[in-house]
């Protein structure tokens, strides 16, 4: 159900944008009004969600420790997987965010005759996830060339690296290929693996299909239709300078591309895509395992009913005395 619905929604969005692209009334809407709105919703939404998370306190220090603790100088502690100080935590978080450290641990369990459970090699999810995200980032950086004049060195450098194969004309960007391959893999695994299909919601298919849609429309423009990049740049710079000019003569695909990006980023802060912000805040990852060395404060710690020693001795005093145990009462 989720798959079909998501597909229908994405296709409808494409149809909507293609239809609107030819109508002069809709062009300013698609090219100017919606993008600005998207920017506002995205930024406000992102901040709001992060603010909501940050607002909730972290009452307990609960890192998931993934290696030897720091105890004695003669036992080698695992500084990154079980950090005991801030430097270690920063290292751990960098590994998580840049390299998906935890996902790298992934294994695949199999039940054989016997019964015998085995835990096999399974790094495809990690690999595809990593390739997809890095490609996405590189593509995003490359897009800055449209918005900024003169083109920043970082952007040129990224482009250079990305196109180093010098294949085809225009040069094929490696990240274009990787992005499509990786997202396709992520999408297929959701459909093909029964357990994954079982847990998938429409909200899981939708972003993948959107990203595929964005990638395909982008690739079409670059490699097949060869749209007028000068016009694109003029438009993008005008948007960035807040003196928008409706683009002319670029064609319907461009509107489709822009519209899909718009919808994805409107959707962003309402959805699981917020993992981008959340991953930084995860209390099982971003805290040092120095619990017994440094007290963690819970801002809402409140007094609770306890059973005091006095009450205990009141009830069991006689039996304690009989068993020869010292009592508070007598001592006074």
């Amino acid at each position: 159900m989720g798959l079909k619905a998501s597909l229908i929604i994405v296709l409808s969005l494409v149809a909507l944008a293609s239809a609107g692209a030819g109508v002069s009334f809709f062009q300013p809407l698609l090219a100017v009004v919606i993008p600005y709105m998207v920017l506002a919703v995205f930024l406000v939404g992102l901040c709001w969600r992060v603010f909501k998370w940050a607002q909730a306190p972290v009452p307990f220090r609960i890192p998931t420790t993934a290696g030897q603790q720091k105890s004695f100088s003669w036992l080698k502690a695992n500084k990154l997987d079980n950090p005991s100080n801030t430097a270690g935590v920063i290292g751990r978080m960098l590994l998580e965010i840049l390299l998906f450290r935890s996902l790298f641990r992934n294994t695949k369990a199999e039940l054989r005759k016997g019964p015998k459970l085995t835990y096999g090699w399974e790094k495809w999810l990690w690999l595809a996830g990593l390739l997809f995200h890095w490609s996405f980032l590189v593509v995003a950086i490359r897009h800055l060339r449209f918005f900024i004049q003169p083109i920043p060195a970082l952007v040129r450098f990224t482009e250079g690296l990305d196109g180093f194969l010098q294949l085809g004309l225009p040069t094929v960007y490696i990240t274009d290929v990787l992005l499509v391959l990786a997202v396709t893999y992520l999408f297929l695994r959701r459909i093909v693996i029964p357990q994954l299909r079982y847990i998938s919601l429409p909200a899981d298919y939708f972003p993948l299909l959107m990203i595929l849609g964005i990638a395909f429309s982008g690739i079409t423009m670059r490699y097949f239709l060869r749209v007028d990049l000068g016009a694109v740049k003029e438009f993008a710079v005008s948007l960035a300078m807040f003196s928008p000019k409706v683009p002319e003569g670029i064609g319907a695909v461009f509107y489709v591309h822009l519209f899909l990006v718009s919808v994805l980023f409107i959707y962003f802060s309402f959805s699981k895509l917020m993992h981008m912000g959340g991953v930084f805040l995860s209390p099982t990852r971003n805290l040092a395992n120095n619990n017994r060395a440094k007290r963690h404060i819970n801002p809402w710690n409140y007094p609770v009913d306890v059973h005091s020693y006095a009450e205990y001795e009141m009830e069991f005093g006689n039996k304690m005395k009989g068993a020869g145990l010292p009592l508070e009462k007598e001592e006074q």
């Binding site: 009452p59 935890s102 693996i193």
Partner: peptide, 23 residues
Amino acid sequence: LHKFRSLRLFMDICVRCGACADK
């Protein structure tokens, strides 16, 4: 949800990648 950042965050950010399933 107001007392535990863990809860709020864990409610929001799961991408259902399934890496935890067979663990």
